[in-house]
């Protein structure tokens, strides 16, 4: 008797929690969010974002990473950023902007077939450093490039 009651309670609690989460839009679509690091994108500081994403926030400057971005971006809504790296077996490339509301813009997960080259367009709120962090062999290597923004791209 007691046992089955307990199981029933546990089961109903678990279901209701899932229902609440789904209701808040947290679980739709479930498989996306399993891979997508919500906390890293919610982080307000570069270090927090890196810690959630890679388990560590200590980065080493590397000359094997090149960040190509304009010196002056006229429109912060569209800033083209290219990250090139010659580091062998790079696992991921993350692009962060220090002054954005949420610094982590994009994270690219590479495979063995990848060539260490990624271009994307990001939004920048104001003049800031664009930081590229490459994860390779359990280490974090970074490079940055200052970009001057004349018109912010995050506001209305």
């Amino acid at each position: 008797m007691i046992n089955s009651r307990r199981t029933f309670l546990k089961a109903s609690m678990a279901t209701s929690m899932v229902a609440v989460a789904a209701g808040a839009g947290l679980l739709a679509p479930r498989d996306v969010l399993a891979a997508w690091p919500q906390k890293a994108f919610d982080a307000k500081k570069i270090n927090t974002a890196l810690e959630v994403l890679n388990g560590s926030s200590s980065t080493t400057n590397s000359n094997k990473i090149t960040v190509e971005a304009p010196d002056i971006a006229e429109n912060g809504a569209v800033v083209s950023v290219t990250v090139k790296t010659s580091i062998p077996n790079a696992e991921s490339i993350s692009v962060l902007v220090a002054e954005n509301a949420s610094p982590l813009c994009a994270s690219y997960i590479l495979t063995k077939q990848s060539d260490g080259f990624v271009t994307g367009r990001i939004k920048m709120r104001k003049t800031s450093d664009v930081v590229a962090v490459v994860k390779a062999g359990g280490k974090l290597l970074s490079a940055k490039k200052p970009v001057k923004v004349t018109l912010g791209g995050c506001g209305g």
């Binding site: 891979a35 290219t82 990624v118 994307g120």
Partner: peptide, 27 residues
């Protein structure tokens, strides 16, 4: 590429409207 994943991008709201993506891979 031929059914094998070569790149996975995790994007946040900080990526521009109508995103442009460019990448390279071997083989």
């Amino acid at each position: 590429h031929n059914g094998k994943t070569v790149l996975t991008c995790l994007w946040g709201p900080g990526v521009s409207k109508n995103p442009f993506l460019s990448f390279r891979f071997k083989n």
